[in-house]
Design a protein around this nucleic acid. Sequence first.
DNA 1: CAATCGTATACCTATAAGGGAATACGTCAA
DNA 2: TTGACGTATTCCCTTATAGGTATACGATTG
Lengths: 117, 117
Amino acid sequence: MARAATTTDAFNAVAEPRRRQILDLLATGERPVNDLVQLLGLAQPQVSKHLRVLREVDLVHVRDEGRQRMYRLNAEPLKPLHDWLSKYEQSWNKRFDLMDSVLDELKETEHDNDHDD
Amino acid sequence: MARAATTTDAFNAVAEPRRRQILDLLATGERPVNDLVQLLGLAQPQVSKHLRVLREVDLVHVRDEGRQRMYRLNAEPLKPLHDWLSKYEQSWNKRFDLMDSVLDELKETEHDNDHDD
DNA sequence: CAATCGTATACCTATAAGGGAATACGTCAA
DNA sequence: TTGACGTATTCCCTTATAGGTATACGATTG
C-alpha cells in the first residue's frame, strides 16, 4: 500500500507547507485564486491543485464571483487535530523532558540495587 | 517531485494514524516494541518502521534495556503544530461558519446595489 | 462570434510511502 | 557455542504525490 491520500483527512492535507500557507492567507479573508498565486509565488495550476485538496477535506469553501472563484477558510476540520495535540500540551509546558531524564536515572539505579521498602 | 518525506517534520510524521496511536500509547509511559506490537495488532517490522520515523523527527527517545528497546514519548516537536492550529481556534469556537454565511450574503447585496454611505 | 481572462484539469516524471515477508543483528540463557 | 528472543533492516510491490507544462472550460467583453 502507499501513503494515505492527502485528501484522506485534515492531518494529511495540512502536512504540506504550501497548503498551510494558503490557509494562513485565507485566514485574513476571502480571496480569488490569482491573489494566492501572487502571494505564494507559485504557478497557478499548483495553487488550484492545492485548493482542490483543501476543498476535498472541506478546509475551504468556494463561491463563484463572475469568472473568479472566491476561496474562504473553513477551519472546523482542524479542530480534531488541535484536540489531539492538546493532550500533549502539558508535556512541553511542565518540563517533562527533565522529569523524563530523572525517571531514567531512577530506573537505572533501581536496576543496579534491589531495594526492599 | 513526490510528497515530502514523512521524516521531514512532525506534521508529516503524525499524518499517519498508526504513528499517532503509537504516541498515544507511549503517552502512558515507556514501552518496549513488543508491547506496542501487541497493543496495535500490527506486525513487528511495521511497528519498528513507524518507530524509526518517529525517532527521526525526535518524537520518541529510545533506551536500551537488555535486549529490549524502551521507547519513550518526546512531545516537544508537536508544539509547533499546536501553535499553528491555535491560530484557528476561534474559528470553531465562535460560530464563524454562521458569520461567514452572513458575510457572504452581505457581499452579494453590496454587489447588487451600490450604496454611498 | 471572437478574443481574453480566471481557473481547473490532464498528462508526464521522479520519488517514496507502507504493508508483507524474509532475514540480519545483538543480547542473554543453557 | 548454540539457540532463542527482541528488534531492525532489506527487498518487493502498488499507489499516489507534487511540480512542470499544455490545454480545456466557463464567463465576460467588444
